Amino acid sequence: AVCQRCQARFSPAERIVNSNGELYHEHCFVCAQCFRPFPEGLFYEFEGRKYCEHDFQML
């Protein structure tokens, strides 16, 4: 399997985020606008991209 964002493979010891069947490295699972991790894992999706609450409100 490969990361949805960076397309790199996962190492066996690595923590992986699964979002609706899409797999991400922990450091790749970030807001599409500000590139920060999601507070408490909370995000909003718009047109296939994931956003933090602040950036989602700015759309």
Rank of each mutant, 00 (worst) to 15 (best):
A1N: 03
A1C: 02
A1T: 15
A1D: 06
C3E: 03
C3D: 00
C3W: 03
Q4P: 08
Q4E: 08
Q4W: 03
Q4D: 15
Q4G: 09
R5Y: 15
R5W: 07
C6N: 02
Q7E: 02
Q7H: 12
Q7I: 06
A8R: 15
A8E: 15
R9N: 08
R9A: 09
F10Y: 04
F10G: 02
F10M: 12
F10I: 13
S11F: 06
P12M: 12
P12F: 11
A13Y: 07
R15H: 08
R15C: 07
I16G: 07
I16Q: 10
V17P: 01
V17K: 13
V17G: 04
V17N: 08
N18K: 03
N18H: 05
N18T: 05
S19H: 07
N20Y: 04
N20R: 08
N20Q: 09
G21H: 07
G21P: 03
G21R: 04
G21K: 11
G21Y: 03
G21C: 03
E22L: 14
E22W: 05
E22V: 09
E22M: 09
L23C: 07
L23N: 10
L23R: 13
Y24P: 04
Y24C: 09
Y24T: 06
Y24L: 10
Y24F: 12
H25W: 02
H25R: 01
H27R: 11
H27K: 03
H27A: 07
C28Q: 01
C28G: 00
C28K: 03
C28R: 01
V30K: 06
V30G: 06
V30W: 03
A32N: 12
A32H: 14
A32R: 06
A32W: 08
Q33E: 13
C34V: 00
F35P: 01
R36M: 11
R36H: 11
R36G: 10
P37R: 08
P37S: 11
F38G: 02
F38L: 13
F38Y: 02
P39R: 09
E40W: 05
G41D: 09
L42W: 05
L42P: 04
L42V: 11
F43D: 02
Y44D: 06
Y44K: 11
Y44G: 05
F46K: 07
F46E: 05
F46V: 11
F46A: 11
E47W: 03
E47F: 02
G48L: 04
G48T: 08
G48E: 10
G48I: 01
G48C: 06
G48N: 14
R49H: 15
R49N: 03
K50R: 11
K50H: 06
Y51T: 01
Y51I: 05
Y51D: 03
Y51A: 01
C52K: 02
C52N: 05
E53T: 06
E53K: 07
H54P: 13
H54S: 14
D55C: 13
F56E: 02
F56M: 11
F56P: 02
Q57V: 08
Q57Y: 02
M58L: 13
M58A: 12
M58G: 15
L59R: 09
L59F: 02
